[in-house]
Nucleic acid binder design. Structure first.
Ligand SMILES: [Mn+2]
Ligand SMILES: [Mn+2]
Ligand SMILES: [Zn+2]
Ligand SMILES: [Zn+2]
Lengths: 133, 133
DNA sequence: TTTTCAATTGCAACAAAGTTGCATTTATGA
DNA sequence: TCATAAATGCAACTTTGTTGCAATTGAAAA
């Protein structure tokens, strides 16, 4: 499906900026930060607009927070290549790079105390990537 | 073991500020932020000093980042009540409160690509707490 | 196509979070 | 007690994120 249609289907205007942000996401090999969106964009995007675009996309679940474990949030397209919002990530403690992992780590019901409702889980494996080992 | 000895064993001076930060951690029911350390302290702690104390404790692994999923990092004592740095947490999407979960979630070796070395994992369950459901 | 108008953007100003340099204070061991 | 390295507090700064508002623009109606 075309990016323009994705936006329209969510009631968002298909602006140049938004289409470019989606292009940057599609182009990226993993979760990216606000700053990386700006740096990898061909358009000159205002910082504030990027924050607003990211927030709009989050609300519609076009993207989701990948929970990097680092100081800045990382985002990725939801549903891309089977990427739901519950897949695990790997973060290298040397180079700081975060990548997607295949498969689904499962939540164990037995661990939750009574009264709590689990809706989703975030799993992060920390360690060393092939380059840094 | 006394807090003073813990500090000295790591080669850190047992200052009033550091002992107070440890007291705040022991007093807390779960992972806490920089701001919460300051707010729950009986002493008047400078913001900068708290950042430096937290960083020193992190380096010595006296505390660790609990991977809250929220915008600010949360920290907790390492090894407290069997709390190693690999236990899962629960975060309520309504009230934002983060609590520790019992048990250990397992990392599945099969998911890691060749060349990657896993050292630890962070697991966060998101949902609703008993108060907010 | 042209007009219209709410949605979106960019800018300025602000707020919150985190860092750095340096002078002063303090814990520790001699 | 004294000397000294480590730690603290303060000021200034950077980075990250938010808000108000005027100008622009996409989309739908005329
Ligand atoms: Mn991913
Ligand atoms: Mn915990
Ligand atoms: Zn690496
Ligand atoms: Zn709650």
């Amino acid at each position: 499906m075309k990016a323009e249609d994705v936006l329209k289907r969510h009631g968002l205007k298909a602006t140049k900026s938004r289409l470019e942000v989606i292009r940057v996401f599609l182009d990226s090999g993993g979760p990216i930060s606000h700053k990386e969106i700006i740096e990898n964009s061909m358009l000159r995007l205002d910082r504030v607009s990027v924050y607003r675009i990211v927030n709009a996309f989050l609300k519609k679940e076009i993207i989701h927070n990948a929970y990097s474990g680092g100081r800045n949030p990382l985002f990725e397209l939801t549903g891309r290549g089977g990427a739901n919002h519950c897949h695990p990530h790997f973060s290298c403690r040397m180079c700081g790079k975060t990548t997607c992992l295949d498969g689904v780590a499962f939540y164990q019901k037995g661990q939750l105390k009574k009264g709590y409702i689990a809706e989703r889980q975030k799993v992060l494996i920390e360690g060393l990537c092939p380059k840094c080992r």
